[in-house]
């Protein structure tokens, strides 16, 4: 049962990260390979804020995504906007290169061994069938709230309507007087901030290290292939679901827990190539 709970925690990260990837892809047509590095930056920002400025976890929860999101905005204005007219492949390669730079710099400055971040909530909560560390429970709930808020923002608000419309037909939306380039920048900043927020949440659980996002982003790619990027709710459900499956695998057949998500991906490709919630592209 404890493994299942850990699975949910991982699922929370998968959901937040794949959500960010899907939102960015919808608007920018770029698969953001830098997502894992930005997740790491979120954790690092919190760790540095705590170490140098004594900024507590709860403030970092807001501050760190803001800082990293701002960094994303600069990246978009400086580099990403130059490649939208090209094949998707170039966006993939560009953001891969950026990930190498960011992770390489972090590794060069702080090494690849991790640093601990103290948990802001200690103790456990009795759920009836098990005792779960309260902080992990908080992570799951927080991720769920953030994901649902993002869903609401995109599906139910005016800004979200702009986003959806601009995903379909940016030229026409711009001809209605909406500043689409700024909307694109904002979307990228938001997606990046989501990754950074996941990073802050992960800091007290994992070690804060330069490579904490490297393998994670690859797993999240598989999650995105499984869910398809067409649906916001789809990303959330797929993320949590796969976390659970991974947790269960840890219980029943531990050696496969690393690879089970990829096996699921292979099965989904066999049965429903467009992904569980996707349209064929």
């Amino acid at each position: 049962m404890a493994q299942v709970a850990i699975g949910l925690v991982n699922g929370a990260f998968y959901a937040m990260l794949s959500l960010g990837l899907a939102v960015i892809f919808g608007m920018l047509n770029v698969i953001n390979f830098t997502h894992g590095a930005q997740f790491m930056m979120g954790a690092f920002a919190a760790w540095l804020l705590l170490g140098h400025l004594d900024v507590p976890f709860w403030a970092s929860l807001i501050l760190s995504p803001l800082l990293v999101g701002l960094f994303g905005v600069i990246l978009e204005r400086l580099l990403l906007k130059r490649i939208y007219h090209l094949d998707h492949l170039y966006g993939f390669l560009l953001t891969f290169g950026l990930a190498l730079i960011i992770e390489g710099l972090a590794q060069w400055k702080w090494g690849s061994s991790g640093a601990p971040y103290p948990a802001p909530i200690t103790g456990g909560t009795n759920l009836g069938f098990m005792i779960m560390p309260t902080y992990r429970l908080f992570v799951v709930v927080a991720a769920l709230v953030v994901c649902l808020a993002t869903w609401y923002g995109i599906e139910r608000t005016r800004l979200g309507a702009y986003l959806r419309a601009a995903t379909e037909n940016p030229t026409l939306v711009r001809a209605f007087g909406i500043n689409v380039p700024r909307l694109i920048t904002l979307t990228y900043g938001l997606g990046v901030a989501l990754a950074a927020l996941a990073g802050v949440l992960a800091a007290p659980i994992q070690q804060v290290s330069a490579l904490m996002g490297t393998n994670l982003v690859l797993v999240v790619f598989a999650v995105v292939v499984i869910g398809g990027m067409g649906s916001i709710m789809g990303s959330i459900v797929t993320g949590f679901g796969l976390g659970l499956i991974e947790g269960l695998t840890k219980v029943y057949y531990p050696p496969a827990s690393n690879t089970v998500i990829f096996v699921v991906m292979a099965l989904v490709l066999l049965v429903k190539p467009a992904g569980l919630f996707g349209q064929k592209r």
């Binding site: 959806r164 379909e168 037909n169 026409l172 001809a175 209605f176 007087g177």
Partner: peptide, 23 residues
């Protein structure tokens, strides 16, 4: 750019109508 033009008071109804399916 087209958004600046639109903000001066022009509105466009395209031939293909441009209704958004996700809205």
């Amino acid at each position: 750019p087209s958004d600046t033009i639109a903000r001066q008071g022009l509105a466009y109804c395209p031939e293909e109508r441009g209704i958004f399916s996700s809205l």
